[in-house]
Computed example of a mutant assay.
Amino acid sequence: MLADIDTWVLDLDNTLYPAGSALAEQLTHGILSTLAQYYATDLAGARRIQSELVAAHGTSLRGAMVTGTIDPQDFLGFERRIDYSVIAPDPAMVAALAALPGRRYVYTNGSAYHAEQVLERLGLTDRIDGVFDILAGELIPKPYAESLDAFLDRFGVDPVRAAMFDDLEVNLALPHERGMTTVWVSAGTPYELLAERRWRTTDLPGFVRANI
């Protein structure tokens, strides 16, 4: 079914580990705390600002860069205070990625540092051939075309021979238009064909086992 795929593109947060995890809570708190300090507001005000920044610019970081003068490294500094031990090794995910033929990349709107910490905790470091983060994309996030083009160019990916997994459907629309097979990892039915070369699953390892 996916025999023509030789490149696997994997989102990180809420895709390689479950949504609603303790790590996700720390990320949210870190972003809101950073925004609260930068914009001199409380957490409620930071949440409103975050919603506005994400809606207009794709991520809080890019929004803060476009509308202000925050240094990206300062913004991402909260990641150094995250307790990554809340993420446990995932043997099922390790086995699933090991079964994927060809190259495997993480494509994330987070930082490479964050990705490296998560991959190490999951036991996936040796299963990934490269990480493309928000800094590699010059702060332009998914789902913008500039980000996708930079990712494809960086690793020489042929979209027609690639499959992309992401928990946000909006991030998969453009890759699908470019010819990629897409898998939306979200709550819902365990295994669903939405359209030609468009899938939805609640279980990434299970999807891989069923299709590889």
Rank of each mutant, 00 (worst) to 15 (best):
L174N: 02
A112T: 01
V106G: 09
R154H: 11
D90T: 08
T125R: 13
W8F: 03
L16K: 00
P18L: 01
D126N: 12
I31W: 02
P72R: 02
R62H: 12
A92M: 10
P190I: 12
A40W: 10
R178Y: 10
A173S: 11
A162P: 07
V86A: 05
S147V: 02
A22Q: 11
A195P: 03
F151T: 02
W199L: 10
Y105H: 12
L61E: 09
L16M: 05
A115W: 03
P159E: 02
A22N: 09
T201I: 12
G45S: 08
T201F: 02
V157N: 05
S21C: 04
G30Q: 02
V170Q: 11
A99S: 14
G30F: 01
S147W: 00
F155S: 08
G137L: 04
T181G: 06
M1I: 03
S60P: 08
P190S: 08
D203W: 06
F151K: 00
A162S: 13
R104V: 01
V86P: 01
H114F: 08
Y38N: 05
A19N: 08
L139M: 14
Q37G: 14
E138K: 09
A136N: 13
L135C: 13
D133T: 00
P159W: 04
D71A: 15
V66M: 12
G77D: 15
